[in-house]
Every structure is written in C-alpha cells, then in structure tokens.
C-alpha cells in the first residue's frame, strides 16, 4: 500500500472501512507511524488521539483485535480495559473480522418508511448470510445500522468507503455485481 503524505490536519480523518486490508498488517510502521505522530500533534493530550488511532488500525486490519487494543493502550498510556470501553462504545469499531465488503443498511425511521427491511432481506438472501456473518466467499457481511444521515435518499446502503443512495430491492443485485 503506497501512501502519499497526508496533511496533519486530516491525518486522523481517513475512512476506516477499506476493502483492501490485512488482519496481520504491521501497525504504526512507515507512513502509519508518521500519521500516528501527526495525529498526536493535533491534541493537547494523548488520550484524545484514541478515536483516530483506533480508526487507523481498523483501516489497516479491518477490525479491532485484542492485540490491537493492547498496542493502542500501550502507545497512549491507557489501560487495555479503557481502550475496550471505547471500542465497545463506538459501533463503527468491529470486534470481529468482516467480509471484504461490509454492507451496512440503514434501517432507521427514514429508510424504514421506504422499505429498508426488504432491502436487508434481499441483501441477506443474495449473499447467503445471516446478519453479521461473513459470506462463504469471504466477500460480504451485511449488517443493519442506525441512521446514516442521508434519509432523503432512502434506502441508504454504505459499502466500505462508498455510500449507495436510494437503493431498492430491485437494485440490490446490480449493487452486489458492481462490487465484484
């Protein structure tokens, strides 16, 4: 993965879901070490760096393992339990691996009114999974999430770094094909 140098102001603000990730990728090396250092310069204390640093780890590895938690705790002078209290509070941190494409379907009121439940069903059927599972080919995990903040474009489906607006049951197949 080649990394261009990020401006420190945005070093901690990169999307944390990427199709290309490696659960065993080294953390805090090379460009990522640079980003870690840059993130620390943006806050008056180390604790404040925890969300961007965890996001960076997830961006690299696809999920947050116990080992990741322990590394982050050590680097930020926090206890592992504290880091766990954070990763379990914020729902975007995944406590287990997910498919290459994490498909998040908004089922909050705006999308619900426009048939989000049917979209979920269709996606689960098409990927042959139950909620949260990884499909057999390792490609997909479908989960329901609360409001993604694009209610006017229901149903909103977020796949890794992309947002698909106005998804209908009829367009689910095309969406999955596009990913392949």
């Amino acid at each position: 993965m080649s990394e261009r140098k990020l401006h420190p102001a945005v070093a901690g603000a990169q999307p944390m879901y990427r199709a290309e990730n490696d659960p065993d990728a080294p953390l805090f090396e090379g460009a990522y070490k640079q980003r870690f250092d840059d993130i620390l310069t943006r806050y008056p204390d180390k604790r404040a760096a925890i969300l961007p640093v965890l996001a960076m780890c997830q961006e690299l590895r696809g999920w947050i393992s116990s080992e990741t938690i322990e590394r982050v705790a050590e680097l930020l002078d926090l206890t592992p339990a504290y880091v766990l209290s954070i990763t379990s509070f914020y729902t975007m941190f995944r406590p287990q691996p997910v498919g290459k494409y994490l498909i998040q379907v908004c089922t909050s009121i705006g999308c619900d009114l426009c048939g989000a439940e049917n979209v979920v069903e269709k996606l689960l059927a098409a990927t042959g999974t139950r909620t949260g599972e990884i499909s057999e080919d390792g490609l997909y995990t479908v989960i329901e999430v609360e409001c993604l903040g694009a209610c006017g474009f229901a149903t909103v489906v977020q796949v890794n770094e992309r947002v698909y607006e106005s998804v209908k049951t009829e367009t689910v197949t095309r969406l999955l094909e596009e990913l392949r």
């Binding site: 116990s66 322990e70 206890t79 592992p80 339990a81 209290s85 509070f89």
Partner: peptide, 22 residues
C-alpha cells in the same frame, strides 16, 4: 488509580469488565 475496570458496551447492554479475559 489503575483504571482496569470499565463500563464495556453501552446503554442497556453495558456491563463492567476488565480487558477481555484478564
């Protein structure tokens, strides 16, 4: 001054725990 116990999860799913398994 050893914050080894924390609230894990949130809302009604919350509970008190150490780092998993520790």
């Amino acid at each position: 001054q050893e914050p080894v116990l924390q609230v894990v999860q949130r809302g009604h799913k919350g509970y008190i725990d150490t780092m998993t398994g520790d």
